[in-house]
């Protein structure tokens, strides 16, 4: 008789635990969102985090931007030459960067650099009881720690994406015009004629969504970090892997939706 009751109980417990595990990150996100739009607002902390996430990531973003643009120009020219269409190299570089590579590469770099740092920092704060100390002092850790980081991500990542795209196009120009002898006038005029406002909106929407994923995953993994050095190690690895995979998967769905619904 006991076994008859125990089995459904075990199944029920597993189902409830699974629902709880899936629900917890969403409840966390909801709490952060509510705290974002309700006072008190801590502008100083947001600015500090913009410095950490945005300003300190800008050099690496500029580096990957310029070399990605350069590689796109080389590859684009090579491929387009087979069709006698090298004049379109500029538009190929710009479109690839604006619609796809700019938002995705920036997000991946920010996740690797700033996301891992956020998770490790929050994780260490968790295991050294600093988060408990905040709560004991009647300071809400969600407002004090999570909101500034997520808001800073939402502000900094789209700006970094813009920088990555612009420097990438410049990299493409330097290689295309300077090394591959493409016409400078054609390079720029093709970009002007190929790029539409919807391409830019599309890139911006993607960078905004990726920024949300970056902040959400980094903060949640740090906040729920396990015990000891192993816990921080695991949380940091999970944070980078989860956010990176999520960015790539969501990028596919966003591209599908944005292309189908918003492209002329």
């Amino acid at each position: 008789m006991n076994n008859v009751i125990a089995l459904p109980e075990r199944v029920g417990r597993t189902v409830l635990d699974t629902i709880e595990d899936w629900g917890r990150p969403w409840i966390f996100l909801l709490k952060v969102m509510v705290a974002m739009v309700t006072p008190p607002f801590r502008l100083r902390l947001v600015l500090q985090q913009i410095l950490q996430i945005g300003v300190n990531s800008s050099l690496v973003i500029l580096l990957i931007g310029i070399f990605t643009g350069a590689v796109l120009a080389v590859q684009g020219e090579y491929t387009l030459a087979k069709f006698g269409a090298t004049a379109y190299t500029g538009s190929a570089v710009a479109l690839s960067l604006i619609r796809e590579l700019g938002p995705v590469l920036t997000a991946l770099m920010v996740i690797g650099r700033a996301g891992s740092a956020i998770t490790a920092e929050l994780g260490i704060m968790r295991i050294t009881e600093q988060i408990d100390a905040l709560r004991s002092m009647a300071v809400d850790p969600v407002r004090y720690l999570m909101v500034p980081r997520m808001l800073a991500g939402l502000i900094a990542v789209p700006i970094l994406t813009g920088m990555c795209i612009l420097i990438g196009i410049l990299g493409g120009y330097i290689v295309g015009v300077g090394l591959l002898n493409l016409s400078a006038g054609t390079f720029w005029s093709q970009i002007q004629s190929a790029i539409t406002p919807t391409d830019i909106y599309s890139g911006f929407i993607k960078s905004f969504v990726f920024a949300l994923i970056f902040g959400w995953v980094a903060c949640y993994k740090g906040y729920t970090c396990g015990f000891g050095a192993v816990g921080v190690n695991k949380a940091t690895t999970q944070s980078v892997v989860t956010a990176s995979v999520a960015v790539l998967v969501i990028d596919y769905f966003l591209t599908s939706v944005l292309t189908r619904w918003f492209m002329p």
């Binding site: 050294t128 009881e129 600093q130 100390a133 709560r135 004991s136 002092m137 009647a138 809400d140």
Partner: peptide
């Protein structure tokens, strides 16, 4: 709510095992 708890936590002070100072 956290706000209601915070009102009561205002009566408390805590010295943690590792002091839990903010780095």
């Amino acid at each position: 709510s956290e706000a209601a708890k915070n009102e009561i936590r205002g009566l408390l002070g805590v010295l943690f095992q590792s002091a839990a100072l903010f780095d």
